[in-house]
Amino acid sequence: MRRAGLGEGYAGGGYNVYEEENDNLTEGLREKVTALKSLSIDIGTEVKYHNKVLDEMDSGFESTGGLLGATMGRLKHLSRGNQTKVLCYMMLFALFVFFVLYWIIKLR
């Protein structure tokens, strides 16, 4: 029967310590990778949501641009017309606004 020397038992025990430490580090790395994967999935979901919101805003701005373009076209058409007629309408509108404001102030 052969007896294990001090060096042989220590070497075998040292190997187990390193193996256990390696397993602990591997488990810690696995947890970090899982957390990182979860975070990246959440970021991807958030990016998709924000892209959808931006697309909706883009279509809203396009429709507003169309509306402004039509309004500008009407203003150009109005400015090409008879200037005295436009000036008369603006004066009548201003008088109407002043009359309404005067009437509201008097009622108080």
Rank of each mutant, 00 (worst) to 15 (best):
V97A: 14
E20G: 06
R3A: 08
W103K: 13
A35S: 01
G7I: 08
C88T: 02
Y89M: 06
L92A: 04
M91V: 13
R80A: 11
F99C: 10
M1H: 13
T26E: 00
F98G: 12
N22K: 07
I43G: 10
H77L: 08
S63I: 13
V86F: 12
G69Y: 01
L39V: 01
H50S: 05
L54T: 06
L101W: 06
F98L: 15
E46T: 03
R2W: 00
V47S: 11
M1K: 00
V100R: 15
N16W: 08
K52Q: 02
G14V: 03
V86M: 11
F98Q: 12
V86E: 07
K85E: 11
L25D: 09
M90I: 11
Y49H: 02
L39N: 06
Y89C: 13
F96K: 07
S63C: 04
A4S: 03
Q83S: 13
L54W: 01
E19V: 09
V53R: 09
T71K: 04
L101D: 01
N16K: 03
E21C: 00
Y10E: 07
G5F: 01
H50A: 14
G60S: 14
E56A: 15
A94E: 13
L29D: 01
G81V: 04
A70L: 06
L36P: 07
L29S: 03
T71N: 10
M91L: 10
L54F: 06
H50T: 14
K37C: 03
S38C: 00
V33R: 01
E20T: 04
E21G: 15
G73C: 01
K32R: 11
Y102T: 14
N51Q: 15
H77G: 15
H77D: 15
L25M: 07
Q83T: 10
R30T: 00
L25A: 13
Y10A: 14
R74S: 09
E21F: 13
G69H: 00
K85S: 08
K37H: 05
